[in-house]
Amino acid sequence: MSDVVLKVDGLGKAFARNGKRVAAVSDASFSVGAGETLGIVGPSGSGKSTLSRLVLRLIEPDAGSVRFDGGDLLTLRGAALRSVRQRIQMVFQDPLAAFNPRAEVAEVISDPLRIHRLVARVDRPAAVAHLLDRVGLPGVLAERAIHEISGGQRQRVAIARALASQPKLIVLDEAVSALDVSVRAHILRLLVDLQAETGVSYMFVSHDIAVVKAIAHRVAIMDQGRIVETGPTGQVIAAPQSPTGKALVAAVPRLLQAQD
């Protein structure tokens, strides 16, 4: 495999619940290579969302290490951390909740360009138009408010915002789960195309192994805070080793076939 963008070792996080400490993630280790998509699959409550929030430093881990793009992500503070954030981005499940309800399309896409001083103010409208075009949206959308556009368009705007600072890794947390099936197919295709163009890596979190199969090179299966199985996607799905892996594969709804 080529360069490793993200390397996570022994990551752990426990939350206090009813006075007890409950492990949400324990001893998680995995890596994501350049231009690679790692699928993280598990039932609800398996800790996959907590894992993505840990990698993004939205919550602080209790144990373990996260190396990103050659540096230690966990020791960074303040301005140094904010500056690294240019290279690691995310896309949320609910594209409406992910944006400030007052925001406009142009504003949210140019935020990263402004914050990391990537594009001068006068050039930002052109940069926004270019980013919109890359995610398959017309430039006129720039002036619209986020609440005025459709759910599928919102998720494209979210991807444009995540791409704006040319990150090396994008964490997608159930990023297609709230979308209609036809929109979902388009967004997945878009993600694959963008990866081919830019070589960005994805950490793609989902409860649906069928979606992960469409997009991920490798897959890690989580259950009860632990990674119970990892491997190349096709191999894991064809012959899952863990009980959770088997259950996830068996639970995928299959279309009725003519010969059924």
Binding site: M1, S2, G33, A34, G35, E36, T37, V181, S182, R184, A185, L188, R189, V192, Q195, I209, A210, V211, K213, A214, I215, A216, H217, R218, P232, T233, G234, I237, V249, V252, P253, R254, L255
Partner: peptide, 20 residues
């Protein structure tokens, strides 16, 4: 037919090529 075409299950061919 379009809905069926957009459906994903484990029989759907992946969108990605071989691992880089």
């Amino acid at each position: 037919a379009a809905l069926l075409g957009a459906h994903l299950d484990l029989g759907t061919p992946p969108l990605i090529g071989v691992a880089p």
